[in-house]
Simulated scan of single mutants.
Amino acid sequence: MSGGKEFGSAGIAVVGAGLVGLGWAIVFARAGLPVRVHDGDAGRLAEVPERLLASLTDLLEAGLIEERPEAVAARVTTVADLGQAVAGVDYVQESVFERTDVKRELYERLESCLGADAIVGSSSSGIPSSAFTAGLSIAPRCLIAHPVNPPYLAPVVELVPAEWTEPGALEAVHGLMSRVGQHPIRVAREIEGFVLNRLQGALLREAWALYEEGYCSLEDIDATVSKGLGLRWSFMGPFETIDLNAPGGVRDYAERLGGLYLAIARERTDPQPWSEALIARVEAERRESLPRDGLRQRTAWRDRRLMALAAHKRRAEGEA
């Protein structure tokens, strides 16, 4: 869709300079592409260079980039005007606030300033693009490109077309994501929450219920994943996991444990929202373990651990 040139070579615009938007800027700049970052909040936009350089320095120390952080950062420019930010680019990665009205207002503005062949991917975590692009002339060039946060450390990105998304737009974004080091996942049609958050939601639903019913502390529930299930899930998905967990493979596993999982599923036939009382209990227990003023520091710790894991997986996959 870019006149014979490799899609993305004309540049990338990232709209929204929060955690996800900054992460996307790193993904594209790390791959050698020029990136313009726009945000309606001037203060947030002004923080981009410092935040960008700090993350790139961490990546260099982890062995995940070879260029100097300053060289990668030089590919990223901040642009206060939306029209100037998207002018002439091939691709726009929208990463604004997760609310339908906010996204709709932005896409109506994009309709008047987007290039004729430019494609827009939304970082929406669960709202399908049809909810905020219906009736717009640019709608056939819009789709979901939902990452894991931060996208420069967790490569999966879900590509979800609306019913009117042009197949060529989906193919172009799939190719771009593959070239910049992401792992694109095709979701055949729209579904609320897409795939990643529906899988995560199933685990969260059970975790909240087990805590509410008094079976486990938050710490022990977290440990069950971080020191158990998550160790395998860091390099295998659920189907490969169960395929290797029974002598005869996945059918053997299904025959042995299918009844147990059916019984568990039948226990949860009346889902309820997380009550304010339950949220307050969880919040109190979490803040006892991690005071609110420690959240940013712990997030940085998480990212460093992810960097170490990403570096290990890169080495392991290279040796396989």
Rank of each mutant, 00 (worst) to 15 (best):
residue 4 G to D: 01
residue 5 K to S: 13
residue 6 E to N: 06
residue 7 F to G: 05
residue 10 A to L: 07
residue 12 I to P: 02
residue 12 I to F: 14
residue 13 A to N: 09
residue 14 V to E: 00
residue 34 P to E: 14
residue 36 R to L: 04
residue 36 R to Q: 11
residue 39 D to F: 04
residue 51 R to D: 00
residue 52 L to A: 11
residue 56 L to C: 00
residue 57 T to L: 03
residue 66 E to T: 14
residue 68 R to F: 06
residue 69 P to K: 11
residue 74 A to P: 02
residue 74 A to V: 04
residue 78 T to C: 15
residue 79 V to K: 05
residue 79 V to R: 03
residue 84 Q to H: 08
residue 88 G to L: 01
residue 90 D to T: 07
residue 91 Y to H: 05
residue 97 F to L: 15
residue 98 E to S: 04
residue 105 E to N: 11
residue 108 E to Y: 08
residue 113 C to K: 10
residue 113 C to E: 06
residue 115 G to W: 11
residue 116 A to P: 13
residue 119 I to R: 00
residue 120 V to C: 00
residue 122 S to D: 09
residue 122 S to G: 11
residue 123 S to Q: 02
residue 125 S to D: 01
residue 126 G to F: 00
residue 135 G to E: 12
residue 136 L to C: 12
residue 136 L to I: 05
residue 139 A to C: 07
residue 142 C to F: 01
residue 145 A to L: 10
residue 145 A to R: 03
residue 147 P to A: 07
residue 147 P to M: 01
residue 151 P to M: 00
residue 152 Y to D: 03
residue 152 Y to A: 02
residue 152 Y to W: 05
residue 157 V to S: 02
residue 167 P to S: 05
residue 173 V to R: 01
residue 176 L to I: 05
residue 177 M to D: 01
residue 189 R to G: 10
residue 190 E to Y: 03
residue 198 R to G: 02
residue 198 R to L: 06
residue 199 L to V: 15
residue 199 L to E: 08
residue 202 A to L: 15
residue 202 A to F: 09
residue 210 L to H: 05
residue 211 Y to D: 08
residue 217 S to E: 01
residue 218 L to I: 15
residue 220 D to Y: 06
residue 224 T to G: 15
residue 225 V to H: 11
residue 229 L to G: 11
residue 233 W to C: 08
residue 236 M to W: 10
residue 240 E to P: 04
residue 244 L to I: 08
residue 244 L to W: 09
residue 249 G to M: 03
residue 253 Y to F: 13
residue 254 A to R: 05
residue 254 A to E: 02
residue 254 A to H: 12
residue 261 Y to I: 11
residue 262 L to R: 15
residue 263 A to Q: 13
residue 264 I to M: 10
residue 266 R to G: 13
residue 269 T to D: 15
residue 270 D to L: 14
residue 270 D to N: 10
residue 272 Q to E: 14
residue 273 P to L: 14
residue 274 W to K: 08
residue 275 S to D: 07
residue 280 A to P: 12
residue 284 A to F: 08
residue 285 E to L: 07
residue 289 S to I: 13
residue 291 P to C: 00
residue 295 L to C: 03
residue 297 Q to A: 13
residue 297 Q to P: 06
residue 297 Q to K: 08
residue 297 Q to W: 13
residue 298 R to H: 12
residue 299 T to K: 14
residue 299 T to F: 14
residue 300 A to K: 13
residue 301 W to Y: 12
residue 303 D to G: 06
residue 305 R to W: 12
residue 311 A to W: 14
residue 312 H to N: 06
residue 315 R to P: 06
residue 316 A to H: 11
